[in-house]
């Protein structure tokens, strides 16, 4: 399998602080949906910023799609790996929603027809078609977040990194944003999200990497990581309530990760015990 990102033995330190990354290695296969979790200050955003050269390691190396990125400018990588900041307002700058989205591909030298096609498709994907002529800062927070993601996607990167896609959004807004992430994943892209929300990890991620104090303390499928209590405690995280319930009563809920799985697991019970304990 081809690797989207390979990080080898990364060390990084902000001036005057303890190491933010202490010998971190991580390999992300192409097409994976990975969640990076941990406390503020644990190193997760620092690590993600190494993937596209926003930060450069003191020691160690990063490969993106099989190429060492040492010496390559972040701007050159933008068509391969897109990075969305936690605060959408850090990247929004254009006068209209449409111009914000078309800026990236236009800058890459994409043909006019293609720019218009991409921008139109993304306006539909993030449901901002009706707002195309609006001033971006007049949009609500959720819409600005989606616009920021759309403007990164317009460069059609194979790898998308989104720092806290749902922070500041309500439940429906968060779900709409995660549906966009899921759509990218179905489309074969590598998706890396940074989040605090373990429900999102359970519902969307194929793999979760837990960071604490500049190191990876757990790495695996959500179901396997959620049982690693000491690692989670070190990162001040708790598995979703549904998982905690299912783990105590596997007889009722099997290996449910999410509330939907747990309630679905109960359905066969009401159909009748005679059907046999397959659930």
């Amino acid at each position: 399998m081809t690797s989207a990102i390979v990080a080898e033995n990364l060390w990084f330190r902000y001036p005057g602080s303890a190491p933010a990354l202490a010998d971190v290695s991580l390999e992300i296969p192409e097409g994976q949906f990975l969640a990076l979790v941990g406390q503020n200050g644990s190193g997760k955003t620092t690590l993600a910023k190494h993937f596209n050269g926003l930060l450069r390691p003191e020691r160690g190396r990063v490969e993106v799609s099989g190429t060492d990125i040492d010496g390559r400018a972040t701007a050159d990588l933008a068509s391969t790996i897109g990075y969305c900041y936690q605060n959408p307002d850090h990247q929004i700058f254009a006068a209209t929603v449409f111009e914000e989205i078309e800026f990236g591909p236009r800058n890459l030298g994409v043909t006019e027809d293609e720019v218009v096609r991409r921008t139109g498709r993304l306006l539909d994907l993030v449901r901002l078609r009706g707002e195309a002529d609006r001033y971006p800062f007049s949009l609500g927070r959720g819409q600005r977040q989606k616009l920021a993601v759309a403007s990164v996607l317009a460069m059609e990167p194979r790898i998308v990194i989104v720092d806290e896609p749902t922070t500041g959004l309500d439940w429906q807004g968060g779900q709409a944003m995660m549906e966009v992430m899921a759509e990218l994943h179905r489309d074969g892209r590598t998706v890396v999200i940074i989040t605090h929300d373990m429900n999102i990890v359970a519902e969307y991620a194929e793999r979760v990497v837990v960071m604490a104090n500049g190191r990876i303390v757990a790495d695996g499928e959500p179901a396997d990581v959620f049982v690693q209590e000491s690692a989670l405690r070190e990162a001040f995280l708790r598995p979703p309530q549904a998982f905690r319930i299912a783990r105590e009563r596997p007889d009722l809920f099997a290996s449910s990760l999410t509330v939907t799985q747990a309630t679905d697991a109960l359905r066969p019970v009401s159909v009748g015990v005679a059907a046999g304990g397959e659930a």
Binding site: D170, W171, Q172, N199, P240, Q241, A242, I245, L252, F253, V259, A262, T263, L266, R267, V269, S270
Partner: peptide, 19 residues
């Protein structure tokens, strides 16, 4: 559009399932 706690949702489902 507000997410109820998982325990509340699963509790109701368990009642409906006769548990």
């Amino acid at each position: 559009g507000v997410r109820p706690p998982d325990a509340s949702v699963i509790g109701i489902a368990a009642e409906r399932a006769g548990l």
